[in-house]
C-alpha cells in the first residue's frame, strides 16, 4: 500500500474542498504547510461533487478543482460526479 496525495492552495475555496475531502475520506491526513494544504490517504482518495456543493452552498464543477490544485500523486479518474486518486498495486 502506498499513499495517494493532493495539495491545494490555501484559500477560501480550498477550505470547503478540504472539508468535503475529510467528510468523504474520514481517515485522510490533512497537513497544513505555508500557503498550501496537503491531504494524503492510503491507496485512494475521493472528492465528491455533491459533498463539495453542500459545503460551498453552490454548484461546483469537478473541473474547477484545477484552479486551486497544486500537485497530486496517484492515478486520476474524473467524471461529472467525482474525482478519484488511486494506486493500483
Amino acid at each position: 500500500m502506498s499513499k495517494v496525495y493532493i495539495a491545494l492552495q490555501d484559500n477560501d475555496e480550498s477550505r470547503y474542498i478540504v472539508e468535503a475531502i475529510e467528510e468523504s475520506n474520514p481517515d485522510a491526513t490533512v497537513i497544513h504547510q505555508p500557503a498550501m494544504i496537503r491531504i494524503e490517504r492510503e491507496n485512494k482518495l475521493v472528492i465528491e461533487r455533491s459533498v463539495v456543493e453542500e459545503k460551498m452552498g453552490r454548484e461546483w464543477d469537478v473541473q474547477e478543482l484545477h484552479i486551486n490544485l497544486i500537485t497530486l500523486g496517484g492515478n486520476v479518474d474524473e467524471d461529472d460526479d467525482q474525482f478519484v486518486l488511486e494506486w493500483k498495486q
Binding site: Q9, M36, H66, I67, N68, L69, I70, T71, L72, V76
Partner: peptide, 20 residues
C-alpha cells in the same frame, strides 16, 4: 514567486497525469 509558482503548478498536476 509563490503565486506564479502555484499557478504554474496547478497546470503541473495535469502534466503529471499526462506523464503517467
Amino acid at each position: 514567486t509563490v503565486t506564479f509558482g502555484f499557478s504554474a503548478q496547478s497546470d503541473e498536476a495535469r502534466h503529471m497525469t499526462l506523464g503517467l
